[in-house]
Design a protein around this nucleic acid. Sequence first.
RNA 1: GGACACGUGGCUCAGCUGGUUAGAGCGUUGCGUUCACAUCGCAGAGGUCACAGGUUCGAAUCCUGUCGUGUCCACCA
Length: 879
Amino acid sequence: MRELDKAYDPHKCEDAIYKNWEDKGYFRGRSDPSKKPYSIVIPPPNITGILHMGHALNNTIQDILIRFNRMKGFEAEWMPGTDHAGIATQNVVEKKLAKDGVKRQDLGRDKFIEEVWKWRQDYGSTIIRQLKKLGCSCDWDRTRFTMDEGLSEAVLEVFVRLYKKGLIYSGNYIINWCPRCQTALSDEESQHKDVDGLLYHIKYPVKDSKEFVVVATTRPETMLGDVAIAVNPKDKRYKELKNKTLLLPILNRELKIIYDPLVDMKFGTGALKVTPAHDPVDFSLGQKYGLEQINVMNEDATINSIGGDYEGMDRLEAREAIITDLKERGLFIKSEAHRHAVGHCYRCHTMVEPRLSPQWFVKMKPLAQPAIAAVNDGRIKFYPERWTKVYLDWMNNIRDWCISRQIWWGHRIPVYYCKDCGEVMVSKVTPGKCSKCGSSNVEQDPDVLDTWFSSWLWPFSTFGWPKETPCLKYFYPTNSLVTAQEIIFFWVARMIMAGMEFMGDIPFKDVYIHGTVRDITGTKMSKSLGNVIDPLDMIKKYGTDALRFSIISITAQGQDVFLSENKFELGRNFANKLWNASRFILMNLKEEDIGVDLCVFFKESELDLSERWILSRLYSTLEDVEKCLGGYKFNEAANIIYEFIWHEFCDWYIEIAKSTISEKRSQVVLYKVLEKTLRMLHPFMPFITEEIWQKLPRSKDAIGDSIMIQPWPHVQKDIISKEAEGEMKCLIDIITAIRNIRSVWNIEPRREMSALINIHDKKDEIFLNKNAGMIKRLSRLSTLSVGKNPKPKNSAASVVGAFEIYVPLEGVIDFDKEKARLKKEEDRISLEIKSIGARLKDKHFTKKAPEDVIEKQKARKADLELQVKKLKDNLKNIG
RNA sequence: GGACACGUGGCUCAGCUGGUUAGAGCGUUGCGUUCACAUCGCAGAGGUCACAGGUUCGAAUCCUGUCGUGUCCACCA
């Protein structure tokens, strides 16, 4: 057997192991009709992305699911890939060019896009390499990119289909405009943030009068585009205004008065300035009353020529200037503090400007219906379940999706305009000439599509759709989607809609939403805040398995994770513990013995208690782990395995087995338990389990040369024995009691000690004598006497269940201290007896509680009473 | 304004559909280097489960309210 290092060194093996898996093609998923498929599509990280803790958590979970199900015998397919991330990527490349003083406009569209492709060539697969470091068993040969030929084809197909169905339309509407990115955003891409602003009260003069109306606004700069003032028809304050005209301050534009119930009388002054080109509410009022739409801003949110003197000023600069001018003219009344939610660009965090502009939209309501049904009738389930409501609330109030973006990087909108007759052509291929007038003066729409317009097709476009490929048929619908809550609306909801619309079927059965990774103060980790813990640093420091295991074990289902670096010690220490236990077993393992079938020992009833116990615990653990994984409770699964390996297998079984380690039986049990435990742990800690497994002798039924393709261990229910577990617990309690006495009385480890156990039942005598060797060894006794033992003089006592344990301590024992010790124990038990007694006396309890609960209480009470009696006896004849 | 989550030992958190003695990791106290592991072992200390009501024979667990923390959604300018 090869020697192992004293401590586990992840860096010595991880890369080689991963390379071997990849070379052997173990990650590959094939459409194999003899097996059932299990598939996951990765949430495609942006090509601009670098691995952060959120990715680490997200992808570790997916890898656990994939590895688990692969071992369970499914044909596992984890489809990887990246997202072109339109705005984000364009921003990154623009920044890079800016370093050389180049603007994208200098390069022109084609050259710029070339630059982006070049950038993607150089940096775009960083994240893929990092996912490999994480141990992800993705089917890399299938890696897709949202701008791949195939996926682009799918995007065009979808656009044309939706257009033909009347679900895509274009028009001049108010959209969220990012003045920095200079593009439209969808409602989801505009993130509301509370901002401390001001509510300005401004006088609007009544024409040919000394009167005026006071209007309250948070954005005075938009007044340059005002066309009316709206008030509530019920508002008595403004009854007089009917048939009068107002004047816009500064510009002196004439303004209509509109009476509409939409206006809230309680807000501000009850008079609303109406700016149809710069506010969604005003826009709808404008439509209703046929008002002019006056756009006063340029694309970068500076004031345009309509703004007169303010032309060229930035919107906030103009705000100040206008307020100053109003003050000068005596038209400014006051400003008051006003906290309100303002939209910000989700990419660059610039304040969004509502802007009137021609855009393309998808009509969402018809698409939402089947997607709502799919969740309502349980075809798709959310874990944790509460996200169902979040999803349904959004879907039931869905608004149309603005899909056009005024950027260059992305899928160009497949719409063509005839410059001569104005014909609009929607087509997957560039039309040579106008279908109506035959002119070849045809131009494509300059805009590109929202990035999510390709992502929402991901679960089927990656498998080849619109072509009906074998793997699309085999792997669709996928099984689980693992993602973070931030992306439910952007991505999850839209994928469900797209799946139902284009595949006629759900894209996945389960949606597992995990929490957000935060730092120890609860703040979301972000580069700009500088509070990130880099997973790659942690891998360097603690190893990949340690990272994976730690983050999984501290993340409860659906709860956010509060991370600090020292948490990774948990995983590292655990890996080291497993390593050393394995090292110990390997050092003692005789290969010729492990081939013996465990069943032989079972048949002959040759296994001793500790062996029956550890096997029982192994299979109980395995059963629990399967249950947890089935319910997406990864932390529980991890903790159950941790507990088993560390506190049962290592702390007890291996210690017990040391005395019999050269015997065949022991060899077989140690080997079997270790080997199966490694398989059970493999989805969580793929590298160390592989490394150890490789050093173990191969069992006859091993398949191939890697642990990752071994079958998941079968739960042998007949080996699970509650009896063995109970008996073992009794022995553990006895040993702990004796150790406790040792510790309390400061008995040096080397000091010879003997103990007596007083029993009252012949059965117990046989049981204890059978296990006396183990008790003696683990509690370091030279002699142990089991039988009708009266308490020796000068001894410490302890009561465990039905037994009294006496440890003679001539010259060491302090009777007062011993008395106090026993008294404390007695008090504790007496208190409990009292409480159970009261419960049992309560007629309501005995009448209504289930039989087994009452029985348990009775048994417990009897047990405790016996213990108290014994403690009392001992207290009586102390010394 | 609406929705959701959380408040458990010094710290970070588990605790499933209510049922015995509320668990873990870190930290902490005492002891320990016998040949798997000091990234370790053994034995401890430490909690009126935010608060107040309610349902129930029985509540950390279910319901209501209060306070505190956080997240998401929202066209009151």
